[in-house]
Write a protein that binds this DNA or RNA. Structure first.
Lengths: 311, 311
DNA sequence: TCAATAGATTGCTTTTGTCAACTATATGGT
DNA sequence: ACCATATAGTTGACAAAAGCAATCTATTGA
């Protein structure tokens, strides 16, 4: 990642922190003529949602000073909202629980918060609402570190719209990353359109890779002749690289081609695509011929790779 | 929008509020052994970035109590960080400015915050960073209301990748909204591939509509014969409807076709696409023939519309 | 010209949060 | 069994943060 991009990220995060600090302030004001402060409300929320919680647990969860929390719990207890039960496993702890009274107070608070947020959300245009929801979930996920946990990889056959996506992404990526010209988009579009028009499910296949729940890659196997299958349009999104998606896609193609009774799997690629080259080598492909060309603008070397499918 | 979607939005916003309240707490802790509280830091930021600002301005901007702010400014002034100048236009106000000392203090604070955020950002995986940045910008934009202000509409010729996008969106929308089958995607892909392969810039055109900075629609004019142009693949994203984008696209096509010397502009559509029908009628097209078909699955009526381009 | 209003400040008060000390229990090692 | 050390929870003392109301001055609009 370029440094300017990093700096922009930092600036965006800082801007967002300032922005949301203000919003949290508004949130606090919203509680102004309820019976609770923002911190009390947060504690109440924890009590209502984490059954059988202890004081230390809440303090850890919310990052509160134990002394401060102790006092808040005391006022709750005096107000008849919280009951304590000595923990069976640890005599130092008490298990906290909301009383009926406490639940009622929480319900009121909850309804109020719900209404406040609903008013805000309803004021948004429908697509703004959708975008907001998705964006907030993303922020949470990324910062929680859920974002860099292993997102599930899914390989599935193409669905309506996927072929267009393949063309779209090929064109955007190769013109952007390698400066290829419109000739490439034309070639991809023709290949893709042909695939749709002449699709033979027994002997042809298009696979789409999803990482998490976003499209991350594609590949096709098409019939060249009765004996020979061709692997085409292998693509892995830059953001999804490093998960072995390319390798998995090619493996599936090999398996499919073998199962469909082909004798050979061939493919055409270009020398500048070094990542792909490595995948093909690993899968057992052999480079059989090369010829320089400039069909896509910059001069490069086209390569044909073959894989013998016989056992 | 379905109600469950609204409820989910509300839940997501509330969850996010809880989440970010916690983060702001961490932020505050980060300032712990600096010389400033979070609020002081925010005031300092305003002073550093909004030149010639007044106390009331800051109070409004940050939602602070004027009395509280007054005291903060006094401590800044006593610390030699802020200077006041009587406002020339309003004798009640003072124009606030940071002294050299004040700038130095801000720079230190800024560097520290920068470093903190940088550490956090650097700990993210690269694509996480990108997603975070984009998502935070989105949240800000939507909540600031920038999201529902009039987003600029832009019509432009296609760029690499757009043709794929057109296929992608046609297939997704028509299979989703009307239950059309894969035959439709095939047709669109063939039309699009043909357009790329035989493109004649003097007599053909593809227009892409952007709303804000996202793709919102498309249309093509292709040569049918020397005398007749054909309008194809008119599409407006559901989220972008109601901005007159479809009408604008068709108008541009008519203008282009006339300028390119065609005598007639024709198009083929289907009766179920009522919104498009209205656009064609408004543009002056006349329905010249109809025939029922079920090429795309559900039975419908294909329609040919013509527009005479002669003056 | 005068009432209403906005900017700024101050005294007073409450709320919120921190810190350190202390008790009681738990845990792990020898 | 015993001891050092750590954790749960409480309390007192205190400091920081924030809010409220009164006040003064200048501005604005009728």
């Amino acid at each position: 990642m370029r440094d300017t991009e990093r700096d922009e990220s930092i600036a965006a995060v800082r801007s967002f922190n300032r922005f949301y600090t203000r919003r949290i302030g508004v949130l606090r004001d919203g509680l102004l003529n309820s019976d609770f402060s923002l911190t009390e409300a947060r504690v109440l929320y924890e009590l209502a949602h984490a059954e059988g919680v202890t004081a230390a647990g809440i303090a850890r969860e919310l990052g509160l000073d134990p002394g401060y929390l102790s006092r808040i719990l005391r006022t709750f207890e005096r107000g008849g909202m919280v009951s304590r039960m000595p923990s069976p496993s640890d005599a130092r702890q008490s298990i906290l629980a909301l009383t009926t009274e406490g639940r009622k107070a929480y319900a009121a608070l909850d309804a109020r918060s719900q209404a406040d947020v609903a008013a805000m959300v309803d004021a948004l245009p429908p697509d703004g609402r959708r975008r907001l929801t998705a964006a907030m979930r993303t922020v949470e996920a990324v910062l929680e570190g859920r974002g860099d946990g292993p997102r599930p990889i899914l390989l599935r056959p193409n669905r309506p719209g996927d072929i267009g996506w393949i063309i779209h992404r090929h064109a955007v990526l190769y013109t952007g990353e390698y400066g290829w010209n419109a000739g490439f988009e034309t070639l991809v579009a023709e290949i893709a359109a042909q695939f749709l028009a002449k699709f033979d499910p027994a002997r042809e296949m298009c696979l789409i890779a999803e990482l998490g729940d976003v499209l991350a890659g594609s590949v096709m196997v098409v019939r060249d002749s009765d004996e020979v299958a061709r692997l085409r349009l292998l693509l892995v999104e830059p953001e999804a690289r490093g998960h072995g998606i390319g390798r998995r896609l090619v493996e599936e193609c090999v398996r499919f081609a073998r199962g469909a009774g082909y004798r050979k799997l061939t493919l055409w690629t270009n020398n500048v695509l070094t990542a792909a080259r490595r995948i093909y080598e690993t899968a057992g492909f052999r480079l059989v011929s090369e010829e320089p060309h400039d069909r896509f603008g910059p001069p490069m070397v086209g390569q044909t790779w073959d894989l013998d499918l016989r056992p």
